[in-house]
Structures are given as C-alpha cells and as structure tokens.
Computed example of a mutant assay.
Amino acid sequence: MNGKCPGSHEMFVRCMFTVVLSLMFLVGGAERGSADEADARRILKAMSDYVGAQESVSLEFDATLEVVTKEEQKLALASSGTLTLNRPDKIHVTRQGGFADTEIFFDGKVMTLLGKNLNLYTQLDVPGTIDHLIDELRDTYQRPLPAADLLLLNSYDALMLDVTDVKDLGSGVIGGIECDFLAFRTNEVDFQIWIAQGNQPYPCRYVITSKRISGGPQYTIQIRNWKTGDEALAADFTFKNPTNADKVDLKELKGVGMLPDHFKEGDAK
C-alpha cells in the first residue's frame, strides 16, 4: 500500500461502480420475462389514458440537458418552468434557465414565443389542437415543448414507437411520491419513466439517454405540483404584449433554445 487515500471523486466512482455491478446481477436475476414486459406496458398505457383524459392540467418542472464537449467533459444545463393546458387547443409554457427566460402562448390559432430577457417575440399561425402544435413545433420548427410526448392524447403510441426492450424495475420515490419505475430501449435512445402509483398515474420523472452521441448525454425532466380539473392553475393563453416587446421572425429570435448561443453542436460519434 502506498498510504494514499483516494480523493472524494474517485471514492464516489468506486462506490458507484460497486452499486452498478450489484444492479447488473439484481436486474438479470429478477427478470420475469414477458410478465414484466406486460406489466410495464400496462402501466405506461394507464398513464397515457389518464393524462390524455385530463381536460385541464397545470404543473411545474425542473429539467436538465446534458451536453458532451469535444474533450468528453459532460456538462448539465439546468432550467425550471411551468406548463398549463386546456384541451383541446390551449397551452401556456414558461421556462427559465441561466441564459434564457421564455414563454409560449397558444390559443388554438396562434403560437407566440416570447424571449422575456430579450423583450422580443415571434408568432406562428398553427391552428389546431395541442397535439398538432406539438407535432409542428417538433417536426417543422425544431422547437419541441418540454417532454411533449407525455402530453399527447395518446402518448403510449408515441413513446412505444420503435421500442425493442421493455422492463418493469419495480418502484421508486420521486419528490415523496411512490412511483412505478419503467425502462425502455430503442435503437436511437434509452428512456426511463417514473409514474405515480394510485388513481392519478401521472409522469413524475422522464429520462432520455442518447445512444448515438459519445458520452451518452441525457435529458431529464422532473414534474411537481401536478394539478388537474378545477385544481389546475389558470393561465393566459393569448399573448397581450404588456412590455411592448418587438416582433421578429423566428430565425431572428436567438438565445431562446435549449442551448446557449455560445454552445455549438458537434457531430455524433
């Protein structure tokens, strides 16, 4: 022995490695095959049915987006926000991070994206439902709403698309709420979801891990203060511009995305 004690970070890694090894044996030995998969699918479908049936929802969230530098350092960008929806066609979202303070209004006809820290906004004509808006923002404008798939009328089909592996990993506790813990795999990503147990099976935490980017960065969103029906908080869904913000084209509204402007996306490895 050289008498040198490992540093706190090294000790943490050693301890976590031991836990990971234990977990590998635990999961492998506890698998019940098709029964586990059927339970996981049933729980996810119950969440989808419950969330899709809610006409009014309000919630708060904390999100972390990991990025990996070319030196393979993993960085976590944290933000928090709120979301309120009234089905079928109204939604209001706020998000605050260290580099952006944004707000989205949708009244069933026009979507407004406001950069509050910039006092600039843009508007898009996207008449239709919340589901249609989610699809348009993701596919046409590359500006997905936080954990948008969880809000769809039928989130089950969207989440299960291209899934190749399903696991029911028992239970966990998120924010004091006991949850069912499920894990899924596709060729592109792995994702985990914790769903509240009981008669309100809402998503408490959702983690997506990239399998195509070096370092396996993750996007994590944790939901709190879930309210539905008459308990859901009220919100303005139509933009009124109380600060006299200037209107610009979408391409001119910089600094309101998930990444700061000084972060440059690289190629997947």
Rank of each mutant, 00 (worst) to 15 (best):
M160W: 01
A46R: 03
A268C: 15
S171P: 01
R138K: 08
R32Q: 01
P88F: 00
V51G: 13
A183C: 05
D131I: 02
S34N: 02
L75F: 14
L113G: 01
T112R: 12
D36S: 14
T186N: 02
E103Y: 08
G229E: 02
E31C: 12
H262Y: 14
S34C: 13
K4V: 11
L113D: 03
I43L: 08
F239D: 03
G198Q: 06
L169R: 09
K211T: 07
N225P: 05
G7P: 09
Y219K: 11
Q142W: 12
T228K: 13
K240P: 04
L113Q: 03
E178Q: 12
T140R: 05
D135G: 00
D131M: 02
N86D: 03
L26V: 15
E188I: 12
D246L: 14
Y141Q: 03
D190R: 05
D230H: 12
I130H: 01
D107G: 00
A268Q: 02
V67P: 03
F239Y: 10
M24V: 15
T238G: 08
G81T: 02
M47V: 14
K264R: 13
C179Q: 10
S171T: 10
D135C: 03
T238P: 04
H9N: 15
T64C: 08
P88Y: 03
T140D: 09
F191R: 13
D267F: 15
L145R: 10
R14K: 07
Q218W: 04
E188P: 00
F239E: 00
P201F: 11
L259S: 09
K264G: 03
T84A: 15
P242L: 15
V173R: 07
L133P: 01
M47W: 10
D89G: 04
C179G: 09
L159K: 00
D131W: 01
I174M: 09
Q222K: 13
F17C: 04
T243V: 10
N199S: 13
D89N: 04
H9T: 00
I104L: 06
V248C: 08
D135Q: 03
N187K: 00
L124N: 12
A76V: 05
A46I: 05
T112G: 08
G7E: 07
Q222Y: 10
G128Y: 00
L114V: 12
E136G: 12
K45S: 09
N187F: 08
